[in-house]
Design a protein around this nucleic acid. Sequence first.
DNA 1: AGCTGGATTTGCT
DNA 2: GCAAATCCAGCTC
Length: 216
Amino acid sequence: MIAPSDRTSLPREFFDRPVLEVAPDLLGRVLIRTTPDGPIALRLTEVEAYDGPNDPGSHAYRGRTTRNGVMFGPPGHVYVYFTYGMWHCMNLVCGPEGEASGVLLRAGEIVEGAELARLRRVSARNDKELAKGPARLATALGVDRALDGADACAADDTEIRIVSGTPVPADQVRNGPRTGVAGEGGDGDAHPWRYWVADDPTVSPYRAHVPRRRRS
DNA sequence: AGCTGGATTTGCT
DNA sequence: GCAAATCCAGCTC
């Protein structure tokens, strides 16, 4: 359960900061997804920063498109994209309006409504896997393009909202290179894009990017 | 525990 | 056309 005092919404100013400041500060925060069947709450344990138009790994790198328009809007809103013909992934827009930075929500612990999450994540072998990975997280919460652009800083429980939770102390935050992103190639990565909670069992395993082989 | 191929839409070259 | 901010089943070690 989430303590009532930890249920206050994060203010929009929280997201109106440099993305590398916001990303580690998101760990331990709680996303509340309201569905027709009831609420699902998720405590964030792993996130990944995308630094606007200067970042070759970002969807915003080549400018605005139909897909990524929300990234160029105000902070605190949700950017949802569809990929690999099958999956949705979810970001929170950061920085001032127009900068197009965002934080990809990579993994978390379901702290409320696990029974609802299990209905959508039938292949999960245990509850730690319900939201272990960005597409699994979106699936567990029932998030798709319909939520693209939703305001996560709303005062009351709307379709999706992020609340204070219990921030993770700095000495329990770990960081490292991105996983699964083209151009991030294994070593020489100067920026600590990815942040996670030390020793948390819901954090997704590191995978280096693997270029796909051509079809026959 | 670790690797491989397949699923399948969207955006960019 | 091809690669993608991925996941899963099925296989081998």
